[in-house]
């Protein structure tokens, strides 16, 4: 008998705690109790890059990787189907961009302009700038991890209004920068930072991208969320027939921001 008392005490504690927890699930749940649905308007700071995955061996060293501070704003509509599970969909306008400088070795590339082709194997420094304006439409499943933490996960598709993918190739800090024309035994053409060769593949970019998004929401106040999300692109940012660069590149961008929740 003596042994049972503490168990009752524990059960009582648990019950009161869950009763209290139940209040918290409701307290931090959807504002509209009838529909269990609402909207979240988000604004955030976007950083990230566009990269081949995995990084090819031809890229020897990243000299610099500088995300250009991007911005995202948009809104999601959500509906909770149960206490823990729901879904959301929305649109997020964004600007994202990055700047990289990398040392490359035997990096196969070719350019075609107005019917002229120049290509081969480049060794030296490659600087790239990317800018993309567009809208992302995520369709996510939402899991309430706790009363105040939400995890959303699902596919997204982005459409771009304007894209830029351009850069320069020249000599690296060791003074090495050259193209072997067509093959590694072709003419060696030196490149210098005083007169770099520039490229612009903006016209060769795919106007859309699809991937997966994961988003964490923390309900900070009754109507205010802090969130962090990651968009991981699964489709090449370049047109399928684009072969100036020997590998596919994927956009990977994270957003951190605040949201108004109703």
């Amino acid at each position: 008998m003596n042994n049972i008392r503490p168990i009752f005490a524990l059960l009582f504690l648990l019950l009161t705690f869950s009763a209290h927890a139940e209040d918290r699930w409701t307290e931090w749940g959807p504002t509209s109790r009838e529909s269990n649905a609402g909207v979240i308007a988000r604004v955030g700071y976007t950083i990230g890059g566009t990269t081949p995955i995995p990084l090819p061996a031809e890229i020897r060293r990243m000299n610099g990787f500088k995300p250009k501070g991007g911005v995202t704003f948009g809104a999601d509509a959500y509906k909770m189907l149960s206490r823990r599970w729901g879904f959301s969909a929305g649109w997020h306008f964004f600007y994202e961009g990055f700047h990289t400088s990398a040392n490359v070795k035997n990096y196969r590339m070719s350019l075609t302009m107005e019917g002229n082709t120049m290509g081969g194997y480049f060794t030296g420094c490659d600087v790239t700038n990317t800018d993309m304006w567009g809208v992302t439409i995520p369709i996510l499943a939402t899991l309430r991890l706790s009363p105040r933490w939400n995890l959303s996960f699902g596919p997204y598709v982005s459409f771009y209004f304007w894209q830029n993918f351009s850069g320069e190739v020249y000599d690296n800090t060791d003074g090495i920068g050259y193209l072997r024309v067509d093959t590694p035994t072709g003419e060696k053409v030196n490149m210098s930072r005083n007169n770099p060769a520039t490229y612009d593949f903006s016209e060769n970019m795919r106007p859309w991208n699809a991937g997966l998004e994961v988003c964490f929401d923390l309900k900070v106040m009754k109507h205010l969320n802090a969130f962090g999300s990651l968009d991981w692109g699964l489709s090449n940012i370049m047109d399928p027939d684009f072969d100036a660069v020997a590998f596919k590149m994927y956009p990977i961008y994270a957003t951190f921001g605040v949201a108004y929740r109703y």
Binding site: L55, A57, M62
Partner: peptide, 21 residues
């Protein structure tokens, strides 16, 4: 997150052998 990205970018594989001759 940035560290993860940077780590991914920095983790270069073995240097390819020279192709020139």
């Amino acid at each position: 997150l940035l560290g993860g990205l940077a780590g991914m970018m920095a983790s270069c594989t073995d240097e390819p052998l020279n192709a020139e001759c």
